[in-house]
């Protein structure tokens, strides 16, 4: 038996909006730790890892580990039927081939339930090694989204370079080229407006902007994004989900063969 009650139901809608462009079908795993998901896009270029910790739910009951295969477009369709302030409860019986989303209005005067069929998904689970990153950039998520959007209008790939001078986002395309340099800036009114660049070693990596832009669909989840770079590894773009967990996107670099 599974019963997860999330008072801030809109969070779940935002999570779905953040990943449904990248991944079509995925297994949601439920354990005593929390509600999680790991999935790759169909080309195996990007991976998303989501964790909503059990403590973040008002009520969390998961009698045994359960993996529920869902089509994310269908799940998003169902969640769209909830009100923005609704409490969402996810329910499933052991061995059931469906999951139920229950929506309660804040004043309890409207209660709906939507049942969705589950599906069998053959998915590989990958071990993500602990890593020492050459550089970690913490910046306003809206600024990162703007840079990715702006550069994608010029080129298809972005080179992200971190040096003593700051972090540079560069692209090149048929109509020209663009460079955006950000310097560390901690003299801001609010901590979430700061740009913090932690560099252990200079690093420069090339990525497909299409994926970066897809990751920025998570912007409504957090004011801050953290970008971790290492020359040997996929970049990690992380959005923290307030008091609940995180959504992390991993993107494999473009490599000179």
């Amino acid at each position: 038996m599974l019963e997860l009650r999330l008072v801030q139901g809109s969070l779940l809608k935002k999570v779905l909006d953040a990943i449904k462009e990248l991944v079509k079908d995925a297994n949601f795993d439920c354990s005593t730790t929390g509600f999680s998901l790991q999935a790759m896009d169909s080309s195996h270029v990007a991976l998303v890892s989501l964790l909503l910790r059990a403590e973040g739910f008002e009520h969390y009951r998961c009698d045994r580990n359960l993996s529920m295969g869902m089509n994310l477009d269908n799940m998003a369709k169902m969640l769209k039927c909830s009100g923005n302030d609704d409490i969402i409860t996810i329910k499933a019986d052991d061995g059931s081939d469906s999951v139920t989303f229950m929506f309660e209005s804040p004043t309890q005067d409207k209660i709906s339930d939507f049942e969705m069929k589950l599906m069998d998904i053959d998915s590989e689970h990958l071990g993500i090694p602990e890593a020492e990153y050459h550089a970690i950039i913490r910046m306003p998520s809206a600024e990162f989204a703007k840079i990715c959007r702006d550069l994608a209008s010029i080129g298809d790939t972005v080179v992200i370079s971190v040096s003593k001078e700051g972090v540079k986002f560069s692209t090149r395309g048929d109509i020209g080229a663009a460079n955006v340099v950000l310097r560390q800036n901690t003299t801001v009114d609010k901590p979430e407006e700061a740009t913090i660049i932690e560099m252990n070693e200079p690093v420069s990596l090339t990525f497909a902007l299409r994926y970066m832009n897809s990751f920025t669909k998570a912007t409504p989840l957090s004011n801050i994004v953290t970008i971790s770079l290492s020359s040997e590894l996929p970049v990690v773009v992380e959005y923290k989900i307030a008091e609940m967990g995180y959504i992390r996107f991993y993107l494999a670099p473009k490599i000179e063969e």
């Binding site: 270029v45 071990g127 670099p253």
Partner: peptide, 14 residues
Amino acid sequence: GPKQSTITRFFNKI
């Protein structure tokens, strides 16, 4: 130009 690598090149199946 540089070629797109895949996630499975870096992370192993468990």
